[in-house]
Amino acid sequence: MNSTALFTFSTYIYILSAAFYTIFLAFRNKVVGTIATAITAAGLGAMTIALGWRWYESYQLGHGHAPLSNLYESLVFFAWCTVLLYLIFEYKYKNKTMGAFVTPFAFLAMAYASLKVDPSIEPLIPALQSNWLHAHVITCFIGYASFAVSCGIAIMYLIKAAKEAGNAPAGGILSVFPSLEVLDEMIYKPITIGFPFLTIGIIAGAVWANEAWGSYWSWDPKETWSLITWFVYAVFLHARVTKGWHGTKTAWLSIIGFAATVFTYFGVNFLLSGLHSYGSQ
């Protein structure tokens, strides 16, 4: 057994947690909810061990670098951040209904990593041999994970708002969702974490690019798309805080923002060419 097997194992754990969170939604059974949280926490624990293990394995191979350097490692790290952030949110808001909407993002990232991406540990090419690598990847992915959590809650909001349009509060599954007012706040909160972290991530990338390539900004597609994502969330914050936009409009902005995030992360690697091609291998 190696760390990759443990990562694959946690993929199965996350499909279980998504399933249990969905069952929890359907039956509103407290025990099921507790099991869902326990499974998710176990998945996070397994991944944390696997991350440390992979780091150790890289030293055994003689490369010795943090597991933050290629597409496989970034997917795993994205799933790890998302689940960690989700669990913090679940604890803070004492509501498990978000689980059914957020854990699937972690599952999808892990399933894609396990099935489609080469998991081998590669040595770092010269451009990646920099301490800025860690600062850049960690801060960007805390941002991405925050946006994933916000997007999951935005989807909840839109479902609930559609059912409640003009009528009394929705019954059935939707009655266990937090109120629209609380959901609206919960869409906003992760963005107030994600936006500063995305900003620090872009800055770390810029300083790094300046040391490696002699230019802090080259309008490379990856850079440009991260800026586009930044613009979307800047619009979100100005619209909500200054113009008083709430509810459906800001929920859509959060979804558009996450779509831009996903495109920055994957789309650029597969569809556009540029300097930032490490992530596609």
């Binding site: 440009t224 798309w225 619009v235 619209a239 113009k243």
Partner: peptide
């Protein structure tokens, strides 16, 4: 409104450039 509009325009034109 101008700020939001300008940010959206910058985003769209930046997309064109990629």
């Amino acid at each position: 409104k101008l700020a939001i509009f300008t940010l959206i325009l910058l985003a769209i034109t930046s997309i064109a450039g990629t």
